[in-house]
Amino acid sequence: MVRSESASPVIETSDLSLTFETGDGPVHALSNISLTINKGEFVSLIGPSGCGKTTLMRVIADLEQPTEGSVSVNGMSPHDARLKRAYGYVFQAPALYPWRTIGKNIALPLEIMGYSKEERAERVCKGLELVNLTGFEKKFPWQLSGGMQQRASIARALSFDPDLLLMDEPFGALDEIVRDKLNEQLLRLWEKTQKTVVFVTHSIPEAVFLSTKIVVMSPRPGKIHDVIECHFPRDRTLDIRETPEFLDVANRVRQGLREGHSYVD
């Protein structure tokens, strides 16, 4: 296995399991997940709905507690990492506050973390630039398109400069053309900022295009089915999706998804 990135682990899970107690009995959302994500990697979690990919991400973010096994983020428990503001989280929906302007939305985490007014202004400015939203600072979220809103929410997640970016199907609600564009922008952003990214998706081309590592998951119980490394050049463009190498990886992911599915039914 070739490691193009420096091999210091940011996230490590071992034998992680999570069981929800529901009215219809226990649901094994995660079962024996062991995964290491290194600094600077772009890791996609892909799988059908119910495979636990979002749950795994929420465990990493300390929004969900595992029932068994261990997780560490930056060598700490997720809880401590959250208190240290180790990561920025991007949800399926922009979740911008409608009563705040775009600028104020991006400033929200900075306000909470007690940044000074000047620093807030500076970082908002930088964040807007990063996601190509300069000039929209004074607009309210509902005056912007869905794609622009999601870009603002990415700027918000990056505003306090966390090393780790957790993205939970951030482009799932957008149309294909906007999604392609945002994928390219995200790639540039990742290249520029050198962040570690964990990215949940159910789109194969998106996963292959963006990732250095693709984790294929299968449902009931949610577990890792396959881990695929892929190393396309960092300055790749969307055209790469026509190349045989790309299609090879995509095929392997599709194969994994299909196998994961077969021993369910």
Binding site: K84, R85, Y87, G88, Y89, A95
Partner: peptide, 19 residues
């Protein structure tokens, strides 16, 4: 989602209430 967002910032109860 909005509440989870506040949680990811490790916002205090008062901050979540006010903001």
């Amino acid at each position: 989602m909005e509440r989870d967002l506040m949680k990811t910032y490790a916002a205090s109860y008062n901050q979540t209430l006010l903001d």
